[in-house]
Design a binder for these strands. Sequence first.
DNA 1: ACACATCTTAAGAATTTCTTCATATTTTCC
DNA 2: GGAAAATATGAAGAAATTCTTAAGATGTGT
Lengths: 229, 229
Amino acid sequence: MAAMTILVADDDKEIRDGIEIYLKNEGYRVLKAADGREALDLLGKEEVHLLILDIMMPNMDGITATFKIREAQNVPIIMLSAKVEESDKIHGLSVGADDYVSKPFQPMELMARVKSQLRRYVQLGTYDGGTTLEIDGLVLDEEAKTVTLEGAPVKLTPTEFKITELLMKHPGRVFSINEIYERVWNEEAYNAENIVAVHIRKIREKIEADPKNPRYIKVVWGVGYKIEK
Amino acid sequence: MAAMTILVADDDKEIRDGIEIYLKNEGYRVLKAADGREALDLLGKEEVHLLILDIMMPNMDGITATFKIREAQNVPIIMLSAKVEESDKIHGLSVGADDYVSKPFQPMELMARVKSQLRRYVQLGTYDGGTTLEIDGLVLDEEAKTVTLEGAPVKLTPTEFKITELLMKHPGRVFSINEIYERVWNEEAYNAENIVAVHIRKIREKIEADPKNPRYIKVVWGVGYKIEK
DNA sequence: ACACATCTTAAGAATTTCTTCATATTTTCC
DNA sequence: GGAAAATATGAAGAAATTCTTAAGATGTGT
């Protein structure tokens, strides 16, 4: 397998360089960033297979960065933090990070976690490029963020777009309301029923000729919503 | 999504039961084992989606168990340990565990990690539960939550679907009424006879041409129900 | 600061599903 | 064949889930 690329983002240069040494030693290619903004920029230009993000960084902290990254990518993220508080761990994990290591850490522990995450990641293959999805006359362009129905443009709000995108990416699969909420909003679902229901209705108003008998977004009673294959 | 099953192995009964309460509260089905050997036995009989293994257990420790499990399965494993030593963490992770929590732990942290691992497991498709089951013209799609009979769609309610799913997942095996109740409702069976019988009847109405002489769901007098292989 | 679009919250209505109970039928065993 | 146990059925009220409407909150750009 070609060398995996790992992006290390930490404002402390010593830590960046230290981690780099260990990673290179394991045969990985390493990119470095001093803050979240830099990390995002690099991520746009290079193919990265795993990120190690410090939580506290100038410009953009690790949690915000994770949030942004998760909007587009599914790459494994390991968070670093000096804080030992549990609340941070939970926050990091629920925001979309895949693992969490608190400073100071044993380099070998970090290496073990990198391997663990990478093993997972590789097994699936890679992520999906932003193409267009089409289902029975409904076309969604992930790059242009547009939707057309039988050729006619449909104007969806960002949230509506994300929900539609999620459902169209997995046609036929049923998503529970909580799952929709967690994957679109990127946070714990709490009392999400109403919120999701309202958005579903708005989407239906826009893409369904007869919202009472929806052609695309169907409800599976007691389970969730889906778009037919 | 059908309830995920989590296997908790710890030699301390209090910890097992404590974790169980939190997990059930989140809607998971919970199996318990007092040592590694028991855990492996259960794993052979039941479908498990995630394991929480204590490192120090009689008969077979968590690390050995992880090693054995990894020979056959790729299910997420979270390790528990009273030791705080880094060496254990590394050992645990490199042996094949997916995450590590040291005792004493905050229950909420453990829950966050369970969710995180499970989300990953499901999302990466490592989880093969999204397939279809078929028995003699009766097809059940676990992802789409649909059932077809000789190609014609059959509309089942959530409870009916879960019962059918359970029986079809283990064709030929007889499930007692109590077992059906406990696995579908995820709670203690108390006076469950009637309720299960009513649902069985409704399912038969929908999938049996002649409910009097059922082709799929057969009763084993005095024992329970099964679907023929 | 203002106008505009979007998101969230709340509450009741509409719908679907679950449970209960009474009664009927079938099977087993003596 | 008859009694006891187990399962099957029908219908109605209870419960849960989703839908709808509308108003208030939040955010964005000018």
